[in-house]
């Protein structure tokens, strides 16, 4: 039974990629208005969890519900239309398209960009300056901002953001942290983040994934003070 308090409920999903059994029982619950972070070592299954929610690597077992509606068996475009925004790892902006075109393509209604432009450009002023430039000409940080901005064009109920700080300079990371905090005031966020400092600043809740299974979850504040748990699953002193 879905809890009305939770935007997303992922229960016991198993996902195969080819013949490889990547997820072997992942459970993630994301309360409304929260920032929940998926933590774990490289290859633990965090990105596959986001892709399974998005319908890009569909699970073979388990349930995924968005505000009570099942997402299992739906294609990615339908899941996006139901209000799930996705910011993949490595940015995945369209390099040959201009900044404007990268934002236009994300519209679900004709006036989405017009309505959301002020909010987006307040978060990421650089994008307004480089509006007519191809995405491939932007710096790494600006490309990450564009990838996040693209997910903000339609009004989504849930944002899935994969490794936003990866490969970025510290000053850009601070800017992104600020931006994600602001956008979290409007929507619910499920984040994958390797950088424990960034995760601990941003997240309210955490789920640790280890070897394809969700092993621990709880309040982020509790994890910050549990050095043994952090050391055991994340290898962070």
């Amino acid at each position: 039974m879905a809890d009305a308090y939770n935007v997303l409920e992922v229960r016991g999903i198993h996902t195969f990629i080819g013949q490889f059994h990547i997820l072997e029982g992942v459970t993630v619950v994301v309360p409304r208005g929260s920032i929940t972070v998926l933590l774990g070592r490289n290859g633990a299954g965090k990105t596959t969890t986001l892709k399974s929610i998005m319908g890009l690597t569909p699970p073979s077992q388990g349930s995924i519900t968005l505000e009570g509606q099942s997402l299992v068996g739906r294609r990615a475009f339908t899941i996006a239309q139901m209000g799930v925004g996705y910011v993949p790892e490595h940015r995945a902006i369209f390099r040959d398209l201009t900044v404007r075109e990268n934002l236009v393509i994300a519209q679900r209604k004709g006036d989405d960009l017009e309505r959301r432009a002020d909010f987006i450009f307040e978060l990421f002023p650089d994008l307004k300056r480089f509006y007519s430039l191809p995405g491939g000409n932007l710096s790494g940080g600006q490309q990450q901002m564009l990838a996040v901005a693209r997910a903000l064009v339609p009004e989504n109920r849930l944002l899935l953001i994969d490794e936003p700080s990866e490969g970025l300079a510290p000053v850009i990371i601070e800017h992104l942290i600020e931006a994600i905090r602001k956008l979290a005031a409007q929507t619910t966020v499920l984040l994958v983040e390797q950088n424990f400092r960034v995760a601990s600043i941003l997240a309210d809740r955490y789920v640790i994934i280890d070897d394809g299974r969700s092993v621990v979850s709880g309040q982020m504040q509790d994890l910050i003070h549990d050095e043994a748990l952090v050391q055991r699953y994340l290898g962070v002193a």
């Binding site: 890009l56 475009f77 236009v104 393509i105 679900r108």
Partner: peptide
């Protein structure tokens, strides 16, 4: 725009809510 974006990354286009 959708076609040009699809030439680069059709999976991402689908993830934006477009029936590729």
């Amino acid at each position: 725009i959708i076609i040009r974006a699809g030439v680069e990354d059709s999976e991402m286009v689908e993830a934006l809510g477009i029936n590729v």
